[in-house]
Nucleic acid binder design. Sequence first.
DNA 1: ACATCTACTCCAATC
DNA 2: GAGTAGATGT
Length: 871
Amino acid sequence: MTLPNPQHLHSFLNSLNEAQHKAVLHEPAAPLQILAGPGSGKTKVLTSRIAYLILHHSIPASSICAVTFTNKAATEMQERLCKLIGKQRTSAVRMGTFHALCALFLRKFSKVVGIEGNFTVCDHDESKKIIAGLLKPYKDFLASKDISLKDGTVLSYISRAKAKGTTAKEFIAEHKKANNDRRSSDFDPQDDIQRVVGNIYQDYEKALRRSNSLDFDDLLLFGVKLFTEHPPATSWCRHVLVDEFQDTNVTQYELMRAIAAPTKGCVTVVGDPDQSIYGWRSAEVGNLAKMRKDFTGTEQIFLEENYRSTGAILKASLAIVSQDKSRIPKTLLTSHPLGTIPVLRSFPSEQAEANFIAVEIKRLVASMGGVLRWGDFAILLRFSALSRAIESALQKEAIPSAVLGGHKFFERQEIKDILAYLQLVDNPSFVPALTRAINIPSRAIGEKSIEALIARADKTKMSPLDVIERIYDSHQPDIKPAVKHKVGPFVKTVRALRKLATEGTSPPDLIQRLLALIQYEDHLKKTQPEWESRWENVQELITFASEVEHDVNLVDVDTNADPSSSDTPLRLFLQASMLSSEGDNQSEEDSKEKVTISTCHAAKGLEWPVVIIPAVEQGTFPFYRTDDVQEERRLLYVACTRAQTLLYLSHVSKRKVGGETKTKEISEFVASATKEHSGIFTLRTPQLPPPARAVVTRVLGRPDAPEAEVLRRVAEFRKTTRYLDSADDAVGQSEVLYHPALGMGGNARPTATFVSSSSMTMAGASSSNAKPPTRRTPKFGSLVRPASLHPGSSSSSGAQGQILAPSKQNVETPVSTLTVPAKPFVAVQSGVPPPGVPPPVTGGVKRRLGMSGMGRGGMGFPNKKFKPPIL
DNA sequence: ACATCTACTCCAATC
DNA sequence: GAGTAGATGT
């Protein structure tokens, strides 16, 4: 291993741009906000700054605290830091999510805040179940007032209160006050709801404490309490760094302040207000301003140089986000070429849209000669339900795809079944685990019996598990629907596991024993149609358990705390399970072979060479029920800025929403952006002749494909994909073109539609070798983003947009060209040969992409005449 | 207590 | 067009 040395330090400092350099070298004691636009290298700056603090300022790694929101971000930071300062020092840095950090210290100092060290982390499902129980007594009352209040709704009210640091008492008091301030004569269903929620909040807290359990919000709240009230818990700290600061909620901000207290202002945060898309999850962008007030002398450094995307993509993205007039003006520079103008298209139906996407992906792969693979494409959606039409279109075209996100590994029932037993072994008070495990496998112990058990436990101040064990041992009378004999195998199982755990049996072995004891495989076979994959998941849990064990030995850090702290391997495994949101591990190789379908939210922080955003329509984007339109706009901005070289937006005129077909209009975000900055989008699908291909390969840092390969693939594509003119289009679909003059794309002109021969021949037949999309989470490696140059240019004069409809016997993609900046263009369908070569590519100059540079004329627009495209 | 049917809802999702 | 809470039946 190469040890970091001064030489090394200089070489990584040299690779930084000016702003990055300034941020890394910024005086440690002066509070710093790094406002980092998309693709501006914020992780690089963060890790470099940590390295610099350690290597140059000689701050011990173990007194640096780096906090992230996700495990993924934490892992990435760890990996990158490792390359700078080596494994040893990296592992000494206190790095992790807010929750993991709190959990770590709460285990050590549990008594200080009045909890037990073996507390269990309660996840949303379990919280919901607790709340469902507490909600029952109110059912009649709510029904009488005709109010429907679901457990999830109550939980989100409570969670929102906790995210702000509002206790149950305060919540109730606030509501009373608000109520008094109002004329009492109004009846407001909100009153009743607030009152019920207040009461449940109080009971919910009690239930958690009785279960010796903390929910996710509690981890932070108890963390704040610990760090503010108990100096030894923070005395180690000399610098705090927070990633994605715009996503912090009030409690997380307080947490940061508490941990940073002994540092006297040695705080570095990184964030981007433009990428704040989690307001609905209690994130407070206002924390940026708050920090500047609380930490006097906070300085701001802007990272505005983008290393990810082409100029044209950034221009369109900025045009969208800058429509928010209340936004802090910021810009983005790129050293990349202008590249291909983002495409904006309209379609008559979601099927037509989906069809276009599928065929266009195929066409791009072909015309890039294989430089782009399936894994280079992402389809980003406002919400996952929109994926239906797209998934089936991709399937028809035999394009493999994977949905990013989906159900999470640790939320699967087979995983929770196993964890419940182990949680019970570690923490006998944890009621949610008891109520689940007691009937796995089914032991015919019903709701009534469990209720009676819990009631008895409350009365006798014992844990429900104690009560069950005592009944089983005949130390206590049985309850009515005789439970004693039914509970036998359960008690025996728990006792056996408990014994094994105290003897130091490792978590993987514990799970193996448990599976045998309850014959879990048989249970799955009996109850689950998909028992095989569920059983695989159980095996994966065992693997995970063995990895945690491994990690722990490496990562264990000294915290100046009681060394006899009770972190057993089992406890560490359980905690890792609860605090990890990791999806299924899909191999990186695998994800390269699949088109990614994801929500825009889940795409944050990721990047793809080609990004396609369908359903950019009013009601969908912005979503009709949003309470912050600007946040929706930023979400679209985030989605657009994921694209490295090609970007597509599309909308339809009619879409089925919940069984009903609704007329749709183009999103106001795009309509207003195109009105103000014409030329940021084109109807013309990119033709990718050698110069355009060169831009793509340069931005991606990949070698270009040989021309022969391109020709071969294009010919292949033509063979398999047929293009039909709408005149003889049996399917009756036709494209609708976006019309900037109308603003809303309703200009339906019969033009062309894609129908691939494969989809025609395969419709109904099962000859497709496309597998149904997997609902599994692929892992994404970070992509390279080398710099290259040359902005394209051109302005357009009032020419007409044209559409190319290729000759019928030939395979062709329709090409439409939009060349009118401010004036309406006319989209014509014809048999005219395709115009269209991308804008000239010039090189070498760094280009400012602020909106200031984009006058009426609209730059970067293809000028009237084009050479025939490659395809 | 469990199986089956019906009616209703339907945004995003970190830890 | 699916997932599920709730009601009903066995």
